[in-house]
Design a protein around this nucleic acid. Structure first.
Lengths: 346, 346
DNA sequence: ATCACTAGCGAAAACGTTTGCGTGTTGACA
DNA sequence: TGTCAACACGCAAACGTTTTCGCTAGTGAT
């Protein structure tokens, strides 16, 4: 087992100084062609690679990006990571991930672990608990210490940094408009509690679309699901809530759900109640997911282009990191959503 | 913007030496109670945290685990990552991810990027291309340089290292046995080409089950799908192949698929051909996925317990890293599979 | 023979830590 | 008053790089 070789060892073997070895490997003109060849040959033989940690210490940059997301077993977030990783690697950066698991404490701890020199900057999406508590001091401190942050999807306006989002309200407005144009007279929405910023915005889009069609919203058609209830296994209560929605409002002929799972489950409930999709009732979901594509019937959906969001976020961050001048002018980039029409709508 | 503060700066401000500051913060008895208090107060005020990179360089360990997986937009792999992250964090380690994207070159490059001091050890699942080319020199070299590797799921026996796998053949044998016990007389399998180790093993399990039931395998019931064709969007050709399978063998009354997607698509094709599930034909898939749960009918499936695999892999690696004695005795841990019965079987 | 110049190399500092050891200052005790 | 331990602190090395500066020996010109 030959351990990693260092400049010092090469220097000793070849009976030259460390500086000579370093310079030879970096093709400095100071070093004679002869020694250069010798050093390079030896280095290649022993498969020398500069120690990254030493370089990081010296250069005071790590060429590593920290990513904090609430959850990784999630189609959207993993697509974002793929996007981040893609451009990060292309530009010579590594990606280190932390999962907040939707918890405020884990978000803070994770950021602290990484902020102590391990990374050059953050890309993150805020956890639900943090959004609920509205405690953003850890973001502010991080930025104050000179470490740039790019937020995506779940953002908060108070923090001054680069952001990558989709136009949630526009995306859902389009979706609901589609339902209304398709002839739906009673469109319900299944959404989350308001503290989830994207849930709130998507609900707004729903209301906007109704207004465009001169329809007034009915409270009874708006179902705000408590997110706690939908933790992987507590789907029955969700089903019951949706079933209640349908039974109270027999006239519902269109459903817009703020995520894929809600839509899929709603379709299932509807089918069990004997409704035909899309003849009697049409569905549109919101997401990037795999469920929509393979559901029966396949679900019309608003795509968020997660990978593209990741790519954009990484570009913003790296550009910021590599910018010489200090003109900090934070951007907010809006990724266009796209309505992917499948068989759950006419 | 107050930059990160260092020992040196604290020392200068308090007019003591760097060593004194360091010792005071680490509660050394060498330092008087007085100075200790003073230093600590100052450090807290300025929110001092030791620079991780400097520590890594000094200790020659980074407390970081490198994870290389073929794909992250994948329910199984993201569950594994969640498991790794869970125990890694608990034990004070970070996780840095690299995606090979099923490519040999990217796998090699990613490993090289990380092996130069950035991490203490690898957890990885081999890319398809690497498996196909059977070129494992990068693994051997990494291990030779003293960096431990834990492989999971897609492993290869030639490499001597810790491994975490499921008993693929046993898992699928159980599944197929279930189908046969349920009365199926003609069970087909939809699998991958043989170079994917797990595909091969799962096919073996299928054959084993048949043998137990004194049935001889029919080549026509074994569909080996070329994985190239199933890249997200080329699903039509897969559908056509499966349709062909069904049309050639009208008697098929059970299908075992080596992954979730194949099973879902097969169900769809069957339904289009007018078969009833599970009355006329039963299905079982292999995976950890989300599709199975929400499909209609929901799919009976062999669960791989991805998160548990990740946890185990991380434990193995960290134990190895923190072990004092050099007794390298590599283990292979087998995670039990579990047959989750849903509505696609009787 | 003297000088200036250059090619080729080495010494040392710096990045931020930790830690073994040396040293100076106390106070107590003989 | 002299000796000695205990106490409190600083020095310096080490981790592996890169880079600035300086040194030496050799070359060519005068």
């Amino acid at each position: 087992m030959k351990k990693k070789i260092t400049l010092k060892q090469i220097a000793r073997e070849l009976d030259v100084s460390i500086s000579t070895v370093s310079k030879a490997l970096r093709d400095s003109v100071e070093i004679s062609e002869d020694t250069r060849q010798k050093v390079k040959a030896f280095a290649k033989l022993y498969n020398y690679r500069p120690n990254n940690i030493a370089l990081s210490l010296k250069n005071r940059k790590t060429k590593t990006i920290g990513v904090i997301i609430p959850e990784i077993v999630h189609h959207f977030f993993s697509k974002v990571i793929r996007g981040i990783e893609l451009v990060a690697n292309k530009r010579g950066y590594n990606v280190i991930v932390g999962l907040s698991n939707e918890s405020f404490d884990k978000e803070v701890i994770n950021m602290q672990m990484l902020a102590n020199g391990s990374i050059d900057g953050f890309i993150l999406s805020i956890s639900k608990e943090t959004l609920q508590q509205q405690d953003y001091h850890h973001f502010k401190e991080t930025i104050n210490q000179g470490m740039p942050i790019v937020m995506f999807d779940r953002i908060v306006n108070e923090i001054d940094c680069d952001k990558v989002i989709i136009d949630d309200s526009k995306g859902s407005k389009n979706a609901v408009t589609k339902l209304l144009s398709n002839g739906c007279k009673n469109v319900a929405i299944i959404t989350t509690k308001d503290y989830v910023s994207v849930g709130k915005l998507r609900t707004q889009g729903y209301l906007d679309a109704l207004e465009d069609f001169k329809m007034s919203p009915e409270t009874d058609l708006i179902l705000k699901v408590d997110d706690e209830l939908v933790s992987e296994d507590h789907l029955e209560s969700l089903e019951r809530e949706i079933e209640g929605l349908f039974k109270r409002n027999k006239a519902i002929d269109g459903v817009f759900a703020v995520n894929e799972l809600y839509a899929i489950i709603a379709m299932k409930v509807a089918r069990n109640l004997g409704m035909r999709i899309p003849e009697d009732i049409q569905f549109i979901g919101f997401t990037d997911g795999v469920l929509s594509k393979h559901a029966t019937p396949s679900l019309t959906t608003v795509s968020q282009h997660g990978q593209q969001m990741g790519e954009k976020a990484a570009e913003l961050l790296i550009n910021n990191l590599e910018r010489e001048d200090e003109e900090e002018h934070y951007k907010t980039i809006v990724i266009e959503t796209e309505l992917i029409e499948r068989n759950s709508t006419k």
